[in-house]
Nucleic acid binder design. Structure first.
Lengths: 98, 98
DNA sequence: AATATAGTTCAAATATTTTTGAACTATTTT
DNA sequence: AAAATAGTTCAAAAATATTTGAACTATATT
């Protein structure tokens, strides 16, 4: 049995998004994910930007909670990619939406 | 004599901007500044969103450091307004610029 | 079956951010 | 000149966020 996922108010998600973006490591992750061509697993990103597995796990969790990335697990590995819809709605369109 | 103002790298300013946006009080301030018609002093904003003078002073300082607001002092009062150029460059255009 | 690999979880330690109240400066009003 | 108003500064306290390593789960390789 899995825990039911909380639906967030849009103000709450807006805050999660900005909090997720307010960290240099997470900005590096996002930058890496934007420029890389192929599908990437967490481990590849971690190596590329030189952080520990534990640290990676923590930061990917926050990015996912903010819905800035989506993830899908294939066997041992967790693939991550940017969720452009969230960027558009909560970053690009932030100013016009408030 | 005034202290020379540090010029920031754009990565540093990007981070300051997201940190400044990563707080509910500061988002309320921004919202208020966007919707209000006339020029506003810090005190008016503080009253509108119910925060203390001290708290206001702290939050306006961070917003100004991120260049999300500009300020000008007239006698006792400090007037604040949104700096749209910063919103455009570091928020609206964030994704395309990284 | 044993070992290696990818990632998570937990709790403790550390670092950073935010809040608070008192004391302060500068200006305005009485 | 005294009192009031707008805002700042400082340091201590409180709250939040991040880092770290050890122990863990699940899958893959030998």
């Amino acid at each position: 049995m899995t825990t039911p996922k909380k639906t967030l108010t849009s103000a709450d998600q807006q805050l999660l998004v900005f909090k997720a973006l307010a960290d240099p490591i997470r900005l590096e992750i996002i930058q890496y994910l934007k420029q890389v061509e192929h599908e990437v697993a967490c481990g590849e990103v971690g190596q590329a930007i030189q952080i520990s597995k534990t640290s990676g796990s923590y930061h990917f969790k926050l990015l996912a909670a903010a819905q800035l990335i989506t993830t899908h697990k294939v066997a041992r590995e967790k693939y991550v990619s940017l969720n452009l819809a969230t960027f558009e709605r909560y970053v690009t369109d932030f100013y016009q939406n408030i």
